[in-house]
Amino acid sequence: MFRRSVSIFILPLILLAGCSLPVQSGSVNDQGEWVPDRSIEIIAPAAAGGGWDTTARMLARTIDEEQLADESFGVVNKPGGGGAVAWSYIHKRNDPHNIFVSSPPLHFVYLNGQSPFGYEDFTPIANLIADYGAFAVREDAKWDTLDELFADMREDPESVTVVGVSSPGSMDHIQFMMFADKAGVDIKKIRYVSDQDGGGMTSVLNGSVDVISTGVMDAVDQARAGKMKILGITAPERLEGDEFLETLPTAKEQGIDAEFIVWRGMFGPPDMTDEQLAYYEQAFQKVSESEAFAEVRDMYGWDEQFMNSEEFQVFLDEQYVELEKILIDLGFIDE
């Protein structure tokens, strides 16, 4: 296991987030079922409008409108520290009425030493949806496949510049490195540019950089318009439900044995009982199976990928090991 040091500028925010109301735990009825004693808070670890916030609000809305639980579900935004403030809040309260939505940054922020809390410090409840990454170039770029791109990068890794929104060591960066590594590229020599102002797509279109590592839905509009080519996506299989999306090749079908799932799932505090876990697991399975949430998935281009708590735990363990290895190889963390 590696050693991490938590960034000191994050700590004051984390400590402040721990100050809260006394914990209430609910009760267990005669049927052995947990009964909340107040409404449920889904914590979105970011400001309104982002992926975590949208997922949380769509889940809460589906539960309430479809009457899938006895108690109401509301959303509370707790931004800060890339998610670290919200995770500290949940961990400190240890209240089963407070749960949160998360995705791969739960791994990245912890691994990069920006939070003392990782996925193992919470209770995985269920995963509900999957999104995927995409690697795209300008329409007139010389590469038509990932194999052609990586062939050039194997000869000269520094000849290609990759851009993403994420900071170095985070999602857009690492998803590209995972696939380049599997393709035999020397990932330590790859030039990656972080454009957190969202100008990465423009940089590709004007020729300032060569490749963008992003989400599928972020690249699709430019590809539909004929301005960009999506060389490959990180999904295990081709996407369905849209004629254009079905044309996008996976990296796997191009001979690159890798996949990267941008999951979005639910977590609870560390000391949840079996009854509390069962309450949420069942509620979110109903959400996943509902027609109402199927419409939400279609609206946002999300894939259905329900995993119960046990399945989700296994998945998280496996993804964590993969990400840790890449970050060690790149020198972001010590072995």
Rank of each mutant, 00 (worst) to 15 (best):
I14R: 03
D147Q: 13
P236A: 11
I14C: 11
L248K: 09
D197G: 15
G51L: 01
Q276K: 05
G331W: 00
M58S: 04
E281V: 00
Q31F: 08
V209R: 13
K252N: 02
W34N: 05
F293R: 06
G113R: 05
F332Q: 01
I42S: 02
P157D: 02
N308L: 00
T250S: 09
E155I: 03
N29S: 08
G83Q: 06
A225I: 11
G113E: 05
M217L: 14
M1N: 09
N112R: 14
P105T: 12
G184C: 04
P22K: 15
G118H: 13
L146H: 05
D274A: 05
M178V: 10
D257S: 11
L59F: 14
E259Y: 13
S27M: 06
V137K: 02
G169R: 00
D121K: 09
N112I: 01
D37F: 10
E322A: 02
Q196L: 07
L149A: 03
P269Y: 14
V76G: 10
A180R: 08
T202R: 15
D95Q: 08
A141V: 01
I90H: 08
M307L: 15
L277C: 03
Y280S: 01
H91F: 12
T145E: 09
G113S: 10
L327Y: 00
D274F: 00
S115K: 09
A141G: 12
D257R: 03
P79Q: 07
I230S: 03
L106F: 10
Y320W: 11
M299K: 11
G232W: 04
Q254H: 13
K182Y: 00
E243V: 03
V137L: 10
F122D: 08
I328Y: 00
S88G: 15
Q114W: 06
T54P: 05
G199M: 07
V23H: 06
L277S: 09
H91Y: 13
A219D: 12
G241T: 06
P168Q: 07
I90K: 08
K189L: 12
